[in-house]
């Protein structure tokens, strides 16, 4: 495997057993999903609800066993969660009883990092996402955008090679969502983590990504791969450019098929 491939997914398939009125039936969710993500590449997966995006991300995270195919991260087969990957969850998944600082430090704690070191790293991560004044706040005391910043800080604090983001801005209002997209790009430009980003939003995928994988079909698979020819750093003015709008239209056409 070439060293600049961070994530390789080959022939991935996954089905779920659904029980309705006492009868079990097999529902295929993913069928023969294959793609690669280069190191430091920002790849988004866009697709309609139920096409298997989240199942795909959970598989790469090692949270879901697959029926067929392989997943490799940094050349090693994924058989469960691993330190080289960190997940940012759609619903934030913050511990409601813990402060922002303790939430960020939680991942480090699970990885056996000592108290002083994990608090130092957690403070640095909170500072990176602009929440250094909110270390003691509980999740319910923060706005949705701030909660997701804590989620991002938690993922970054463990310094993963690959950041897996499952519709992280899906539950935010449009204004907060756009501001968080810009914030994410600012953070990503700093140390260029490899990112797999799941989203419903075509515009979000194009604004953030080096490459956009369009998923569709039942069972879900990658039906189109597009590379936005937009220079970095990205700016909002690019959203009205010809390159952006033509690619957006192409994705919509693909999704409509």
């Amino acid at each position: 495997m070439s060293t600049d491939v961070a994530v390789r997914v080959s022939g991935l398939a996954k089905s779920f057993v659904r029980e309705t009125r006492g009868r079990a039936s097999v529902v295929p969710v993913l069928g023969d999903v294959t793609f690669e993500i280069a190191r430091a590449e920002f790849v988004s997966i866009v697709g309609p609800s139920g096409c298997g995006k989240t199942s795909l991300l959970r598989s790469v995270a090692g949270l879901l066993d697959v029926d067929a195919g392989t997943i490799e991260v940094d050349g090693k087969a994924v058989t469960g969660p691993g330190r080289e990957r960190a997940v940012v969850f759609q619903d934030f998944a913050l511990l409601p009883w813990a402060s922002s600082l303790d939430n960020v430090a939680f991942g480090l704690k699970l990885q056996g990092v000592g108290r002083a070191e994990r608090r130092r790293r957690a403070r640095a991560a909170l500072e990176m996402v602009g929440l250094d004044g909110f270390a003691d706040a509980l999740p319910h005391e923060l706005s949705g955008g701030m909660r997701q910043r804590v989620g991002i800080a938690r993922a970054l604090s463990v310094d993963p090679d690959v950041l897996l983001m499952d519709e992280p801005f899906g539950s935010l209002d449009e204004i907060t969502r756009r501001s968080m997209q810009e914030e994410l790009l600012r953070i990503w430009e700093r140390d260029k983590k490899t990112v797999l980003f799941i989203t419903h939003s075509v515009e979000e995928a194009l604004f953030l990504s080096d490459r956009v994988l369009v998923m569709g079909g039942k069972p879900g698979r990658v039906v189109e791969t597009l590379t936005p020819e937009l220079p970095r750093p990205r700016t909002r003015s690019q959203e009205s450019s010809e390159a952006f709008t033509s690619m957006r239209d192409k994705i919509w056409e693909t999704l409509a098929c």
């Binding site: 995270a61 949270l63 960190a86 969850f89 998944a93 511990l95 939680f106 990885q111």
Partner: peptide, 12 residues
């Protein structure tokens, strides 16, 4: 919350 369980699992 199963999301919290998943989160903890994802961090090892």
């Amino acid at each position: 919350s199963s999301a919290l369980h998943d989160m903890a699992r994802s961090f090892g």
